[in-house]
Amino acid sequence: MGGEFEGVVRPRRMRRSRRGQALVEFAVVLPLFLFCLLGALDAGLWAVQTSAEVSAVEQAAMVASSAGSSPTSETAPDAHAVLTSISGRLRSALFGTTIKSWCTTNASGDCAPDATQRCPTTPAEVQDVDGPRVVVVCVSEADPPACATPPPGQVAPYPPGCEDSPMITVRVVGFVASFVPPGFGPGASGFELPANISATTHTLRFAP
């Protein structure tokens, strides 16, 4: 009797426990699988976007550094002008992300000349000002120190590098949209991808 009972009930219990085991396995594997899938997709997206940012920043640095080398312009262009020259390249890669220029605009909508204007150094700084999924293009120029009469024992030009042309830095910085939709990550910017690429070079000045 006992044997019959066992023969009827145990397979049912076993089936139920196997179904339960499969469910637990599925519940464990699904998040892991999704994590790996989204991680791999985001890593690929990050590489593609960073590649576009690097080439755009390189082009922007060349544009900005050679602006003064043409007979029609003598100063470095502002962030608006630099953004215009690279926006096509950036927009095709940074989908779902707003691209802006980082500067104080004047009444006519151009970048106001402001010597104290500095570029943001972290994506979080951009997010604090412009919100999530915004990338800014910033151009900053660092002038060399003023030349002075060299003290005894020192050679002109003094201080060293005072006759250098200014150094120009173009930076693309901010948080870029990823494949994980907003709200699914830990916090507002949980799965956004940080972007912080810069290029620095000396400016080229026109001389007839």
Partner: peptide, 11 residues
């Protein structure tokens, strides 16, 4: 590429 180009930025 920028380093190569910048050698021509000097006077």
């Amino acid at each position: 590429a920028l380093a190569a180009q910048s050698r021509f930025q000097a006077p």
